[in-house]
Design a protein around this nucleic acid. Structure first.
Lengths: 216, 216, 216, 216
DNA sequence: AATGAATGAGGATTCATTCAT
DNA sequence: AATGAATGAATCCTCATTCAT
């Protein structure tokens, strides 16, 4: 399934823009450096060296250093959101999933793999969002609006079915999202080197959410 | 209660080093700039201007720009952790709180206010931790070890009492912490401008955790 | 009369080298940019964009940026000087003009139109001469020597006829040229947007010179 | 007389801003380089080297390279214009000079020396005016308005006295100025290395203007 | 002939830091 | 203690020019 690929490879394979070989190297080097040291602390000369190209080559493809950042971060936001908007949630609503629990399980599996494969990109995204208003805006528009909207529909449906407690959707979203992101962040960013029994932890996470949201 | 003060003021009042007036202004200016633009993207000249001091003055007090960062971030980590280590958790174990729910409530009230009063500092902390190994180490030692240890004791106690489900403590900590931080981040960082019914949301959050952790 | 054409068009039509279409566009773009921003401040990529050709194409035709400048400026110096050397002055000396005044009138009409049609080129020429010794040398050789020589002959003739005062020819040339160039510069470079009664001003200019040079 | 000093020295001595030693060296180096190679073709590193300061030092005193240009060119425009506005013309109108000829003689002596002492500055001024709209504007406001106005008064006076022909003042100004600038440019910029009998040439120039403007 | 990707030297400017006052 | 002028390395970016296609 294409969702499981790393975005970086998708960049290089799917994109019709036909990225040059050098462009691919630049992108890869930039992702590595940005995620390790942060955007502001990464110099273009460093990226050039790592990519094995001349510094000028970077600026032939990306007008500014910031353009390079955006060319990395913007498509990834789209990729992240795509399945919510197009596939999975539709499936849920189309009764492919009978209930919130199955949905959660499908989503976690799907998006967790996505995160895992794109860790560096996510680090960049979350590090830089606070400092770039355009990114913040994009993020809100995409995630807070498109994804949230779809989520809301699902929640209403599950609430109507009596599967989950009758809280305002935004609270349900917040509690669900917190728990899932908490897992991802702990698992892949904070303590990636610990031993994690992934299947077990995911199951615990799902049960925690389901019980937390169970009608009283 | 001193926990409710902003750390910045505590810096200035409690510290025995006896900060000069200029030093205070430098710290305040640095906090503002670092949290707005990030450490790497903030120049010392900018801080000097904002603080109303000469550029050289900063370096009289802090050998390097990074020293300035650490002088801000390190004490705040200590302050954040202090109550866990010294007061509240002890109180819990000393049976001042009868159960996990009361503890959660007390902790949220206590630490949420702390966050709220020190938002800028937290932004800096979380932004910079990934890029400074010393910070990461400090953070892990303090939080992951000291706080986690205390938490574990409490969890064992509550599990023994049958209040919460018998999961491994690290899972309980993870799920609890995710949910609480999720609230704080949503409330104060992502969507601070939305209308939040704080008491209600906090109650929902607590109930979510309690049900999520209830013994099956 | 071909003198009245713009040099640029002459470039394109008369030149035996047979300029390609692209070459014409490059020259036109270069003239525009050089005259607006100066040679040093104009980039070849800008010229390429304006000309609608690839950056490399410029260097296929002109080895260096400076070559491009020279290919513009050198032929124009020749064109400017040509009539002095070949046509008009000969005509004067061949008694087609009876006196200095008629000559002045003819020259102003002739060369003023030439200036007007080639303003951009003249701006480039006068801007760049001070910075390019080869240009300076060319200019002196052509103008200061060939034109000056012809002028001198005419002046001697007119002085012998008692039409103008008996100053050294270089003074006569200087005073005449200053006045005429003063008109052209004021008219077309400094204050082109003012209302000018051209015929009247030209007549005043001629009368000023004639009276200024009248034998006492 | 202070008008006869070079502006550069005045910069350094009279200015109350109290220029640093380094600043003086920067200005001197910039004037030399700008006048030799043009503003755009001069690099800040070159100026720094010539001035014997670090490149950063330039930017401590002048925010941009263009600022440096303006800090050179703007005060000189003021200096050039000052005597017209304040001293000499007033003197003329206050009957210190009886006629246009005496005025011309005084002005040429006065301003020619000024030019001679500030050749490099004038080269810069005239080279750069076409490319910097602010300069162009300043120039027009100062010269075209203030000086021109004063000139006009004088011309009206001399015309009323019957000393000069009854042309529109702008024509008189143009013809006078062309002739004088023509002398200066020829003398100091185009052919400075020729032998010039200065007194004689100036007298010829004055006589040319006076006869050129004599009432018919 | 024409392209445009690639280069790397050099551009203006900013930076953290030093030091004489 | 405090200043702010001075530094020069490093920043992002532009440039004229080359060369494989």
């Amino acid at each position: 399934m294409s969702d499981q690929d790393s975005i970086i490879e998708e960049f290089f394979e799917e994109e019709k823009d036909g990225l040059t070989d050098k462009q691919k190297k630049i992108i890869a080097a930039a992702i590595e450096s940005f995620s390790e040291k942060g955007f502001a602390a990464t110099s273009t000369s460093e990226i050039a060296k790592k990519a094995g190209v001349a510094e000028g080559t970077i600026f032939r493809h990306y007008k500014t250093k910031k353009d390079l950042l955006l060319s990395i971060v913007v498509p990834m936001m789209a990729k992240f959101i795509a399945p919510f908007v197009i596939n999975d949630l539709n499936k849920v609503l189309n009764t492919r999933y009978e209930n919130y629990e199955d949905f959660l399980r499908a989503m976690i599996e799907n998006r967790v793999i996505f995160f895992k494969n794109n860790l560096a990109l996510f680090k960049i995204l979350f590090q830089e969002i606070p400092f770039h208003p355009e990114l913040k805006k994009l993020f809100k528009e995409h995630l807070a609006e498109k994804v949230y909207e779809r989520f809301t529909e699902l929640i209403h449906y599950c609430q109507a079915e009596g599967q989950i407690i009758d809280l305002p959707p935004y609270s349900v979203v917040r509690l669900t999202a917190s728990t899932i992101f908490g897992y991802i962040i702990g698992r892949y960013l904070l303590f990636p080197e610990e031993d994690w029994e992934d299947d077990l932890e995911i199951e615990r996470t799902i049960q925690f959410i389901m019980h937390g949201l169970s009608p009283r």
